[in-house]
Amino acid sequence: MSSQAFTGGHKASHQELPPEFQDQEESIKITGFWMFIVTDVLIFASLFATYAVFVNRIASGPTPAQVFQLNTALIETLILLTSSFTIGIAIWAMRQNRQRMVTWWLVLTVLLGMAFVSIELTEFAGDVAAGWGWHTSAFLSAFFLLVAAHGTHVTMGIIWAVALLFQLRRRGLTTVTRRKLYTFSLYWHFLDIMWVFIFTVVYLGGRLI
């Protein structure tokens, strides 16, 4: 299959589609994964709404401006934006049938994800050590709930990506592994979008309210 095969534009017939869409069952799973993302959008919307309601309820605890370090948040953002780019390149390489390239860009994505989670955990540990735990105020409860929900998603994504690396090594780029890589990329980019909102609302917003 040549990489030129998919350039058919929007009138492409099924035969010209990438393998993960050519196969009807796999393409249904991709649609199903979009439905999962739809539900996850609603979960994060609820957490953002909770945060918006409680952000000024600081009780005797610290204000947002006291808690948040913009440097750390910027580094986390840059890491996640870069990992979104690397998985984007992995999917591009997958469409070109370049398995080695897919593997290395996926490895890079996993490493960036791990760096992100480590920095976030360090940040949380520092907050708790300073006496700013989730029980300190409604603001901190909402903050930890929102940001840790995102961090948990990223951690799950890392486990998923490592499993995919093993499958890729064993089975190569099959229709099924292509679909799994594709849905993983959707998940990862979705988490990047949620982080951009966390960076804007929580970290930048903390300086503006």
């Binding site: 739809v38 959008v41 609603l42 919307a45 918006a52």
Partner: peptide, 22 residues
């Protein structure tokens, strides 16, 4: 998408509900 990209409809709805909620 394999056929019409119907996932755009619920995705747009979810974003609309999310923006409304927040």
């Amino acid at each position: 998408s394999r056929g019409p990209a119907w996932h755009l409809v619920p995705l747009g709805l979810a974003f609309a509900i999310g923006i409304g909620l927040v």
